[in-house]
Amino acid sequence: MSSPHATEDAIFHGPLGRWAGWILGSVVAADLFAMMVLTFLDVSGRKLFTSPIYGAYEVTEFMMGVLIFCALPLVTAREGHVTIDIMDHFVPRGAMKGQRIFISLLSAAVLGVIAWRLWVLSVSHLETTEVTMTLHIPHGPFTRAFSIMAGLATLACLAVAWDYVRGWRVAHDMSHGAGAGSA
């Protein structure tokens, strides 16, 4: 990853992108740590003191949502989504730049639609007071936040496209070592 900003987890160029990336990183780090501690406290509370944390599982659910959607711009800025890159050998060097710009724009379109539709869903959640069964946690604020995060990921994706346009990112044969870390 040769982008000038990818290493610092900035989600796009400039101080704002760095700052946003740092905030998101801090949020997901704190959130994941809290998820872990919450499970530990819930289970040990139940086992040792017969007093589990009421509705812990619903809290876990929303903490996980925050984790995934806040990390989405970070993944996107790094071009961290899993791709099949075995055709890279067959793409002419000259066409690679154009290919990457096209892919980034298409990805931005998909993320943009997700952001838009999550926003629409958040309107419905707020209007109908959608809440969870046990703790009555409202869905609306979360759908709205997730929509905003998907929007940020869209911006990050457009920034990636711009990087390629300006030559700040260079497309090269990645069919080795693209770190998916998935399996």
Binding site: R46, T50, S51, P52, Y54, G55, A56, Y57, E58, M133
Partner: peptide, 22 residues
Amino acid sequence: KIRVGGDVPRAIVQTFGGVVIT
């Protein structure tokens, strides 16, 4: 420790001093 779903079962368990498992 009683597993319940919904507010009425929860109220019953809590009123009688049980532990609600969600």
